[in-house]
């Protein structure tokens, strides 16, 4: 099993505040990995460090075997790493089609190639609204659009920051289905979540982060069997 994405003893800071400390874990090609932890545990910072939005102070991040830490976000994205931010960050003045255009990158060998038509199949709601500005979409539709926009870059691995946050339960179900669809298409997925219920429904492997440190790594089944870990860090 080869690691598609690998973090090795990553440290980051915001100003003088130490956010991540020696974070290490890996995601294998084709799997869905989930980073679990409560708010402020360092989940978003971890994903931002991977895509280059937060500077990595120490340690190494490898993607498809190459070092990517220290590079600009656009360089990392160009290598086939897609990032979907937690707060969606839709270009609200641009239409749905234009939002997709911004994400467009050339096809990539070894990764599924997406077109507008294919994405509209995956997210039918977007098809009806293709000429509407992103700002007019509902919260759930915006969440679909932000994922579709990243997929236009034909990533081989995609980072999803809290995809279920703030969505109606019925939309959360659709989101879980979409993530399983990505896995089937051969995309490696790393998502962050606080919702264990959702994580269990989509992920193969879980890493628990608390106060900027990884406290547990194992399969979802192992996590399910480990009552003590769940009680200590997930508080459900």
């Amino acid at each position: 099993m080869t690691a598609m994405l690998e973090l090795e003893a990553v440290d980051t800071y915001y100003g003088r505040a130490h956010i991540l400390s020696r974070v290490s874990f890996a995601a294998s090609a084709g799997e869905v990995a989930v980073l679990l932890g409560r708010n402020g545990a360092g989940k978003s910072t971890t994903l931002k460090s991977i895509i280059g939005l937060v500077r990595v102070a120490a340690g190494a991040i490898r993607f498809a075997g190459e070092r990517i830490d220290g590079r600009a976000p656009y360089e990392i994205a160009k290598r086939g790493l897609g990032y979907v931010p937690e707060d969606r960050r839709i270009f609200s003045d641009l239409t749905v089609l234009e939002n997709l255009e911004v994400g467009r990158q050339p096809p990539r060998p070894g990764a599924p190639t997406w077109t507008e038509a294919k994405l509209f199949e995956l997210f039918p709601n977007l098809a009806e609204r293709r000429r509407q500005p992103g700002g007019r979409l509902s919260g759930g539709e915006q969440q679909m659009l932000t994922i579709a926009r990243t997929l236009m870059g034909n990533p081989s691995c995609i980072l999803l920051d809290e995809p279920s946050e703030g969505l109606a339960p019925v939309i959360v179900d659709q989101m879980a289905a979409a993530i399983r669809g990505l896995k089937q298409a051969g995309v490696t997925v790393l998502l962050s979540e606080q919702n264990l219920h959702f994580a269990t429904a989509v992920a193969d492997r879980a890493h628990i982060i608390e106060k900027g440190e990884i406290r547990f790594s194992g399969t979802i089944a192992e996590l399910g069997a480990n009552e003590a870990i769940r009680a200590a860090y997930l508080a459900v």
Partner: peptide, 16 residues
Amino acid sequence: RAATQDREMVGALGVN
């Protein structure tokens, strides 16, 4: 026009 709204996100989508 996208960068006008969110330059960081445009970068994260692979655009310099």
